[in-house]
Design a protein around this nucleic acid. Structure first.
Ligand code: SF4
Ligand code: SF4
Lengths: 142, 142
DNA sequence: GGGCAATCAGACCGATCTGGTCTGATTGGA
DNA sequence: TCCAATCAGACCAGATCGGTCTGATTGCCC
């Protein structure tokens, strides 16, 4: 029940990128130096984020990355899903996935849907824009 | 962003145990046979749950386990924390834990508290009693 | 009172995944 | 044309998880 370090760093990097949104493209190395994340790790995260469609990247000299969407349209859920894959607490919430041998006899299976939806919603209501504010915006339901 | 199989199985086992609440003590093997979880794994989970104080166990012939508290007083958060440790999305939400090198310069750190609380709350509002019902009770906020 | 069977409890090991580093492909500028 | 800068993907060590096994403890039965 904890998200991976990669995902955590991804949030930090995206937050830093959001502050440079109006400016020019920034390189992954710049973001790494700004946040303290190791440079190679930052490159890998940027790669994943770009592949997921959250960032727009340009290679070559003077290249860099920038947000593919406005900061207000990117949520924590998007970032987490980009790094860790779909948000699915149990193995049976994702339709089409049937990796659990207990399906059919499992009594709690139908309940996971609601719980999973609640968590996904909690993460979806926190946008990058709210992360840029210094004060705490209770973007998530209490 | 997914919980471990052990925690998932723990929820299933606790749900099965809750149905036997009014009866006699049940053995871990019985619950395993009833749910389909491998027997040794079920024993391990029962062990962890007992150590966490969610179950009351008795050794010896005729021994077994029973809920330490009413089913309505046990939530998903309790079970998950018993298996996976404290619910802390990032490394900096738990007061006293300072394992992250980015603390101090990290801009998103103060926001994790609200998110973490929201998720913990979502899991805390689902009780074992609601899991025993067949119909879906939206015990979690939409 | 002694032996036995049943049960929980903890230690051990293999497998999977994560986290991190490295090298290569690509692009723009000098 | 060459070079420097940057992203992109492959590679490997470490940690954690999942599962199995054996041992300690208790109550029952003889
Ligand atoms: S079927 Fe039951 S045990 Fe299997 S993943 Fe779903 S909730 Fe968990
Ligand atoms: S300080 Fe920042 S990077 Fe470190 S755990 Fe907290 S949120 Fe994540």
């Amino acid at each position: 029940m904890k998200l991976s370090s990669l995902a955590d760093y991804a949030v930090v990097l995206m937050g830093a990128a959001a502050r440079h949104c109006g400016g020019v493209r920034v390189s992954a190395a710049m973001l790494a130096a700004e946040t303290g994340v190791p440079v190679p790790t930052a490159q890998k995260i940027v790669s994943l984020l770009t592949r997921a469609g959250l960032l727009r990247s340009s290679r070559g000299t003077g290249g860099g990355i920038q947000l593919a969407r406005p900061a207000a349209a990117i949520s924590l859920a998007d970032i987490v899903e980009a790094i860790e894959g779909p948000i699915a607490m149990a193995a049976c919430v994702d339709a089409g996935r049937h990796d659990c041998a207990l399906e059919g006899s499992c009594k709690v299976q139908p309940h996971w849907g609601a719980v999973n939806g609640a968590i996904k919603s909690a993460l979806g209501q926190v946008s990058l824009a709210s992360l840029s504010h210094d004060h705490i915006t209770t973007g998530a339901p209490a």
